[in-house]
Design a protein around this nucleic acid. Structure first.
Lengths: 150, 150
DNA sequence: TTAAATAAAGACAAAAATATCTTTAAATAT
DNA sequence: ATATTTAAAGATATTTTTGTCTTTATTTAA
């Protein structure tokens, strides 16, 4: 057994965040981004990306439209959409709330052996994700301060 | 598509941490803990746990002995074994080092859109795991301050 | 030296995540 | 109306992770 390649988020979730950021960077009101365009932009498998976008539409983070000039756009104000919402939509909220050791009966009063140590980190993570919104991220990408690609 | 149940660590990794803690709580020098005992103590599938323990033995976090009164024991000083080492052995170190968005070309100079925000959290997580040792954890379990079970 | 107890190793099975392909539905433009 | 474009939905395939079972190797004790 070599080791598992566990990361912070699932691949689906990473594609979701990337896709949302990509769509958010587009000049608004102009035109929707199609599946093909998105998948190419974020370097993700097209059909799998489609499934993920569907989920984001279901969770009302994206709007979609069929037909010519159809595609996806951010639903609502990018300023109010957080990374936490995107992650919650795809990966669920166990990353925010689940016991690090997977124990059922883990709580403040009945803490698992790493409960308090992880709580601080988790609160940090949660707080950061709740306060990081799409608009800010997209602005920095558009200003060339951070990058979705090379 | 309902959502994925992504957590911080893989199940294998959680079993590993639990197992290491359990073994560390046993009075030292006395006797080794057998597979069956460990799996029962941490409520994990026995055969799968065996594979995980093998990996921990390979990575020199545990010693094992076959035959009657065989079993597993912590290799070396529990004071110097950190959660980071256990996690690294089973889940690898992508959780410490990998880009949150899975981008190949993500670095300080060429940061992905969430790089800096996540860096702080990741450093927090890494620091915590590197400074949390088995001995301290086991002591608190033995003192009834934290719990592996109900 | 043999039987029993144990972990190691390897083959296999099941479940979940990732990925693809095909069909359907809806929108647009001609 | 019809053809075209697009997303949605559903079926299927692949890979990874999780889990089990069987055989082998090693140790202990009788």
């Amino acid at each position: 057994m070599s080791c598992i390649k566990e990361e912070m988020f699932s691949k689906a979730c990473k594609y979701a965040i990337n896709a949302m950021i990509y769509v958010a960077t587009l000049p608004e009101g102009v035109q929707r981004a199609g599946l093909k365009e998105i998948a190419q932009a974020i370097n993700s498998p097209e059909a799998f990306t489609a499934k993920i976008l569907q989920q984001l539409v279901r969770d009302e983070l994206l709007n979609s439209a069929k037909g010519p000039h159809g595609g996806f756009e951010i639903q609502g104000d990018p300023n109010t959409i957080t990374i936490a919402q995107i992650v919650g939509s795809i990966d669920g909220n166990l990353i925010f709330t689940g016991c690090a050791l997977g124990l059922e009966k883990c709580s403040e009063d009945h803490p698992c052996p790493v409960h308090h140590k992880f709580k601080a980190v988790r609160d940090h993570l949660t707080g950061m994700m709740l306060t990081t919104n799409l608009k800010d991220i997209a602005t920095r990408v558009n200003d060339g301060i951070s990058f979705l690609k090379y």
